[in-house]
Design a protein around this nucleic acid. Structure first.
Lengths: 261, 261
DNA sequence: TCCAATGGTTCCGAAATTTGGAACCTGATA
DNA sequence: TATCAGGTTCCAAATTTCGGAACCATTGGA
């Protein structure tokens, strides 16, 4: 096991739930002996990937990660155009917008567009969630081939919130529905009382895939309002797909053609 | 040279000016042979520290850096209280606020509080600047011992903007002035037409040191307005130093006592 | 005051990884 | 078809890493 692998193993121990770790925490989480942990933590600290609180002696992500993190997709065209469009929709509807990417069977929030409605943002950028339990996460999965989906969903099937698909068959049913309508919906899944609608957008040029969603309080919205959000999202999807060269645009227009026979 | 050292050497090649790099760029910047570069880039990509654009094949910071970067000092008390206070001042004055940390002889912007004045933010978070050329950077340096300052300033003395201290003696003169008044000022240094005033804040508990500054257009502000900013900053400094247990508070109150004799 | 626990560093030979030159592959371009 | 940039794979030599054990420094009881 290379030094880099070990370093990554340590870095991956940090999360929103565990933003800093003690020497003992790292030892317990990685299962490595004391001497190895000691040497590795020192290296990581010296190179700036970790910092050490001079008082508590606990370790936390370092200045280098902050700098690099700020560079991540800073000039990404797909995300940039999507975010601009999302801002408009969020300004019109008052709800909160999300842009996320897929990583395995999880998604990571990249951008947030706060809405005017005072719904506290509980999913800050960097947040990692099972993609199976979010509207835009499922929308991204729906864009993959069935084999790829099977390969990504862990076995045994994970325990998910009540309203999320509870097994692989239920998941595929929902994904088929998304493929048919082009829009994905979620309600009361990751967070009770919160619903969202989303879709996936691909770049024809780079093949990148991102998930875009609008999130709202289920109680505080009417069915009419949610239908309006759906229309807004569908319009945004069509517009964005055209400008980014999303290959789905062909399929979608084709299907529109056949269904309106 | 360990694998980790090499990895960091590659990661440090990325910056705001070079947010993505080709294989050849990395080879040229690190001076490593092809085979080593190839293997290392693959490792970095596989572990998530780098991503590769599927179309251009260029490398950029990966999802892992984004996630870790979001965690960096997310729950830092010193920064949190300083940011709250800074928000108030920026709301009152309309100018842009900055919080930065020192890293060697450079500073890195951690937080920005946009002002109501439409001064385009040119120093986004993650921005690295020579600390000698900013108000809060010099304020942080002024808190170090003379030996530490000498050790941090590179030799030969770097080429800095016209209004920055041009040699070590000039620097020390300005730092002494900052130590005397407690506030630091800059005008037309890193960016033409932009001025700023700042101070340094330390935590009595952890010893952390941060620099806080308010930035404005020199042309669009009057001397009276700048004097007002100075008063605001001095008040903020005193208040924050009390709550964070900054050891300077003692020295400051002592000095106030002696000067008002 | 001594003891034990916590937290962490240093040492060392065996074992694993890295290194870099060279050969090789692949897709563009002339 | 030749050439070149860009990139991967191979291999033996050189370098690092590994982890158990000994060791060191603080802290907090008993």
């Amino acid at each position: 096991m290379s030094a880099l692998t070990n370093a990554i193993e340590i870095l991956r121990c940090f999360s929103a739930a565990r933003p800093d770790l003690s020497f003992a925490d790292v030892m317990a989480l990685t299962g490595k002996p004391k001497s190895s942990t000691s040497r590795l933590l020192r290296s990581l600290r010296d190179c700036g990937l970790l910092e050490q609180d001079p008082h508590t002696r606990r370790y936390r992500p370092g200045l280098l990660t902050f700098e690099l993190g700020r560079l991540h997709r800073a000039h990404d065209d797909l995300i940039g155009t999507a975010e601009r469009e999302l801002r408009e929709v969020c300004a019109r509807t008052g709800h909160t917008g999300y842009i996320a990417v897929l990583d395995g069977f999880e998604q990571v929030v990249l951008r947030i567009v706060p809405g005017s409605n005072p719904l506290r943002v509980v999913n800050p950028p960097g947040q990692r969630t099972p993609a199976l339990a979010t509207s835009n996460g499922r929308a991204m999965l729906a864009r993959l081939s069935d084999e790829e989906i099977r390969a990504r969903v862990p076995t045994p099937y994970p325990k998910l919130p009540r309203n999320s698909p509870q097994n692989f068959a239920q998941l595929m049913t929902r994904l088929k529905e998304i493929r048919r309508t082009g829009v994905s919906e979620a309600a009361d899944e990751s967070i009770e009382g919160v619903g969202s609608q989303g879709f996936a957008l691909a770049s024809g040029e780079t093949g990148e895939l991102i998930g875009i969603a609008v999130s709202y309080s289920v109680q505080a919205t009417t069915a009419t309002e949610r239908a309006n959000i759906r229309r807004e999202l569908a319009a945004m999807a069509t517009k964005l797909r055209r400008t980014t060269g999303d290959p789905l645009i062909n399929a979608a227009s084709l299907r529109t053609g056949t269904t309106s026979r």
